[in-house]
Design a protein around this nucleic acid. Sequence first.
RNA 1: GGCGCCGUGGCCAAGUGGCAAGGCAGAGCUCUGCAAAAGCUUCACCGCCGGUUCGAAUCCGGCCGGCGCCUCCA
Length: 455
Amino acid sequence: MRITDTLSGEKVPLQPLAPDGVVRLYVCGVTPYSEAHVGHALHAIVFDVLRRYLEWRGFRVRHVQNFTDIDDKLIERANRLGVDMASLAGQNIESYLAQIKRMNVFPATEYPRVTAMVPQIIAFISGLIEKGFAYPSGGDVYYRVRRKGDYGKLSHRNIDDLLSGARIDPTELKDDPLDFALWKGAKPGEPAWDSPWGPGRPGWHIECSVMARETLGDQIDIHGGGADLVFPHHENEIAQTEAFTGKAPFAAIWMHNALLQLGAEKMSKSLGNLVTIDEALEQYGPDALRMFVLGSHYRSPSTYSDEALEAARAGAERLREAAFADDPAVTGRADAPSDSRERFIAAMDDDLNTPRALAVLFDLARDVNRGRAEGRDVSEPRALLRELAGVLGLTLAAAPAKAQEAAPFIDLLIAVRSDLRAGKQWALSDRIRDGLAELGVELKDGPEGTAWTAR
RNA sequence: GGCGCCGUGGCCAAGUGGCAAGGCAGAGCUCUGCAAAAGCUUCACCGCCGGUUCGAAUCCGGCCGGCGCCUCCA
């Protein structure tokens, strides 16, 4: 499998670095200061599909996703709400994990948190100081950006161009305006940990360097995250880690998903233009959300809209019908096996080309429907359809049967309607069908009776 | 200002040198008491201009339009 690597800009073959052959995947997770939105859902789904696919292909995967539960915004919001940072973070983490589950996203192998790694972070920073890559200053510790010549290599920036950006905080504590904080001395009202430099807390980027190293080692196979993290977060991470370990590359592949747009702009917490995961799930369900995400390549930005989600929902429904509708009596022979499996693999191997992979599923669905209509045995393509849908994390489950308790009554109405139909009482039988439709229950008359689905 | 991405049918979206995948929506037909579902058929010459080539959506140059990052952010 080949994956586009942000650092080199090329599609790079994935070959596990470690002798045990385990793929080490580190994904930058969320900062749990507020509810997650569908942009986070996209991110979670993309890496979930990567992991499912790799495992399906026989790789073992260690998938680590962090929670940055020490953070400026977290502190700010906790203070505003009058709660402590840990419980605010805990709450949001809990609801994120619940959403992940509802989206049929596999839980990561491990979810490290910054608050549980402070000693390791302090040790890491101390190491950087010893090696001359960092320096304490006024209770803070800063990373010396110009010490190594390759700063900027990930985001393809020239270090001197960054200065002209002029958005840099001109702190007198820094030797160079581009230097960034590894450790921030405590201010009043902030949670703090003891350190050799006085009470304080980790800066923003250091935690990922430490958590990745603690959980996966000095060098990893894939480091993932949203495209908005390339600079400065991942740029700083790669600098710190490679400075500390003296080994490169820190990650063989840097994989970044494009950001979700809402309307003309990216969806983001700071812009306030967002749709939460709960809202999307409530309205369209997990498969529709996933179909929407997989319908475009992970590196091209897509735009969230009701139209797009509705189309995705309809597509998921089509696959579901093909994969799970009851079979009529088989009268013909089975179809010859298709090359669908190979086409699916070829698509996914090529930088996780999920739109092409989905096209294979739709082709299979057509094969199944056609074979079924012609009375052939479709068990083989149907089994493959289910298998591949599973690799993409689609449940193809019927919409949650809200009408579960109403089922006996619906069945009764259907039975009455069948009698009416037998007596050609069309007006009455249609009234039942239309009435149920208004209640969200759809009837389908087939040769073997009437089936219903509730929405 | 610097770095980068994108512009394919009504909507969404693959395709990066050789007859333009797939989905949604639409139209016609089959099936159906009528529907629904399903099947079949149908629907594009790829932002504009120029160049390279036997041949370009696909390579090169220019232009127009949209977006991202450079600041907390998946």
